[in-house]
């Protein structure tokens, strides 16, 4: 079946395509530039002769970064954080969302309101730090994923998804003698894979990219996640930081190595996207169109 397209429609499509190709390229360019820098000799990078293609090709930067104990430690930390944080976040958010999605839960409205309240107001940084310190969590890994385990925004998305599932499914499970827990894990969850994948991706990306929490709670080098390492690598090479500090200036990280570090730090999370993409699109549609 072919639909006839009018001239204006084709024109519109053409413009659209050109526009998006242009923007796609614009977002791609920095990556290409970084890749070229990471593969070029330092001398070429310093003199600014590297644009989109490596000059003075070498792979030593990657070898250097991949042998760097600090990079590897923090990579390990980030992977651990992303996996544990995502698993925990997903679990806690789901078991909270399920009861909140059931109309038979008494006081549901008030409970929900309490969750939503935290979206708008929070204790702030200092009370949080005090709390973490009192709990003995400063300089520990849980400080990075416990406070973020429930994200109310994610909670609402999952709750809405559960609400959209037909009540009759739950009723028939109940008739067959399933408990609440069983209903959640055997009936609701298998039907909610798209939203689960989406939220998992949200969590994973959040934990992967978050450096601020670590900057506040972590001073132990062995516990720093990759993004904090990266941030510090870049900041400690900036002229602002090196001003008046000759000894630090003598030890700066070459720009080609900085580029390689950035790429290697971004790659893992980029690799996750394609596998979750199909769920992702479905998941984001949640609630928009009701069949």
């Amino acid at each position: 079946m072919s639909i006839r397209t009018s001239l204006s429609e084709r024109l519109f499509n053409g413009c659209n395509i050109a526009f998006f190709i242009f923007f796609g390229l614009v977002t791609l360019l920095p990556f290409v530039n970084l890749t070229a820098k990471s593969l070029s000799s330092e001398a070429a990078v310093v003199s600014g002769s590297v644009n989109l293609w490596p000059v003075g090709f070498q792979l030593g930067t990657y070898q250097y970064v991949l042998e760097d104990a600090m990079f590897l430690t923090s990579l390990g930390n980030s992977v651990l954080l992303a996996v544990v944080g995502t698993a925990l976040g997903l679990f806690v958010t789901t078991i909270t969302a399920y009861p909140l999605s059931r109309l038979r839960l008494r006081g549901r409205k008030w409970l929900l309101l309490m969750f939503v309240f935290t979206m708008l107001f929070s204790g702030g940084l200092i009370p949080m730090y005090l709390l973490m310190q009192a709990l003995g969590l400063v300089n520990t890994m849980p400080a990075l994923f416990l406070p973020a385990a429930i994200n109310v925004f994610n909670l609402l998305i999952i709750k809405n998804y559960f609400e959209a599932l037909p009540d009759s499914l739950e009723e028939s499970a109940k008739i067959d003698g399933a408990s609440n827990v069983r209903t959640l894990f055997r009936i609701m969850l298998p039907l909610s894979l798209p939203v689960m994948a989406t939220i998992a991706l949200f969590f994973a990306v959040y934990f992967w990219n978050d450096y601020f929490t670590a900057m506040i709670y972590i001073t132990n080098q062995d516990l720093k996640p990759l993004q904090l390492f990266l941030k510090e690598l870049l900041v400690s090479s900036s002229s602002e930081f090196l001003k008046d500090n000759v000894d630090a200036a003598l030890n700066t990280t070459p720009q080609s190595i900085q580029a390689a570090s950035i790429l290697l730090a971004t790659l893992p999370i980029l690799l996750v996207y394609p596998f979750l993409q199909k769920y992702f699109v479905k998941g984001v549609l949640v609630g928009s169109v009701k069949g």
């Binding site: 330092e42 001398a43 070429a44 990078v45 310093v46 003199s47 002769s49 003075g56 200036a249």
Partner: peptide, 29 residues
């Protein structure tokens, strides 16, 4: 440093700790 070492500029007030990188880059370009 980029401008000096790529031959876009003729004079620059350099800190000595930047010399190794700058000299190498200029030698190449």
């Amino acid at each position: 440093i980029e401008k000096f070492s790529s031959g876009q500029a003729a004079m620059f007030r350099m800190a000595w700790w930047n010399a190794p990188g700058l000299v190498k880059a200029l030698e190449q370009s």
